[in-house]
Design a protein around this nucleic acid. Structure first.
Lengths: 226, 226
DNA sequence: TGGACGCTTCGACGAACGTCGAAGGGACGT
DNA sequence: ACGTCCCTTCGACGTTCGTCGAAGCGTCCA
């Protein structure tokens, strides 16, 4: 793949629309991208094959879904360099609003035994930003992270073969959130201390006032975000 | 012209070769580029029409000659972003080791607002070896590097969205040298303090005796290498 | 003034590319 | 086990695009 080849990957309107949509950092399915760009699913497949084999996108197969996302920060810079030279403003469309119950689910919910949804993402992001958590190359807790857990009074059960930190793909945010033994311990602690409670018998969760204070104290999360 | 249109301008091997050749910051004539890329003059004309009307190149007519050069620093950044994702394709078919002026250019020259050529490579390599600079995965200055800059009396202007460190493909050495805001600041400082001076009005540079001392003191570069 | 040179226009050719629908494979939920 | 859903493969169609040579135009130099 030479320079012209890489440029050729973005030289098509449909592929460019895919990449612009993926600039939000989320993972999209092939069908969503096809409907978004107004092309047939088979067309989207061939485009995604090109973009993935060209290294601009990476994919993750989950069941019958094919999730793709931008591979690298260099790709983002490339697309932004192109957009800077394209007089046509690249509008940032696409707002996914759903019904009330789904909004609650999208906000915070249980995913097996750990937290998911926008709140879980905010927690995960804050932990990474504070250097408590690392995704790659091997997901894991940092030394600071272990200390932080101890100070918060959260104990992670040992002895099991379960990996302490795992990345779980969030189906509303399309980005990975914290899972594994640490994620489960965090969730158990949040429920035990009343930072979060379940809505009825569903998997949806709400953050209590006490939880708002706690997340702000421990991670600096602005209460408005919860 | 939308994003895909801009990408399409660089999605052709001949046009990409034109732009890579023009990365040295000089102005080339249409015929030179045609011979360089191995296409007919008429073909070069149509390509140049596209690149100029697309805003990637600007032209100057002098008599019967048509000089073109890269329009803008944004275009340089775009090409570099593409080259960063096309690891193998950046090789240049023709070797420019001809006249004395070109040898001087190969030794040290301006590439837009930063240093290029063998001397620039030596500086870049020394900075990496001393742990002042890192290429990957995220090009950037280390903490030691920031300290080194301050001690050398070099201030990098902030506030801009320009990335501090970028890798710019060197067209004589075919390896990346230091670009970005740090590269520009380094170059400006070298010219301001008289470490290097321009040869006449060309882009070629020479290292002054004071510069030889300075590069040796700050980076340990052997004076023979400059 | 004549010839050389650099660039441009035009027409034509062939290859590459994006698009779709139909059919098939695999995973999921009932 | 069945239907449904998501994705993929395949073949075919039409368009776009890069390429060239020939001819033409303007500039420069002798």
């Amino acid at each position: 793949m030479d320079l012209a080849g890489v440029a050729g990957l973005l030289a098509d309107g449909t592929r460019a629309a895919f990449c612009l949509a993926l600039l939000d950092g989320r993972a999209w399915t092939a069908n969503e991208l096809a409907r978004y760009a107004g092309v047939a699913p088979s067309t989207a497949t061939s485009h995604l094959n090109l973009l993935v084999s060209g290294g601009l996108l990476v994919e993750e197969r989950h069941g019958r879904h094919r999730y793709v996302r931008v591979a690298d920060r260099r790709v983002v810079e490339l697309i932004e360099s192109l957009a800077a030279l394209a007089p046509q403003g690249s509008a940032r469309p696409r707002s996914l609003s759903a019904s009330g119950r789904q909004q609650a689910l999208a906000r915070a919910r249980l995913c097996y035994d750990h937290l998911a949804g926008a709140v879980a993402l905010a927690i995960t992001d804050a932990m990474i930003e504070r250097g408590l958590l690392e995704w790659g190359p091997e997901p894991g807790l940092t030394g600071k992270g272990a200390l932080w857990l101890a100070e918060a009074g959260i104990t992670v059960p040992g002895g099991s073969r379960r990996p302490p930190v795992r990345a779980c793909l969030d189906w509303t945010e399309r980005r990975p959130h914290l899972a594994g033994a640490v994620g489960a311990a965090l969730c158990a602690h949040a429920l035990a201390t009343g930072w979060m409670t379940r809505i009825g018998t569903t998997r949806a969760l709400i953050v209590t006032p006490a939880g708002r204070r706690a997340w702000h104290d421990h991670l600096g999360l602005p209460p408005a975000e919860l």
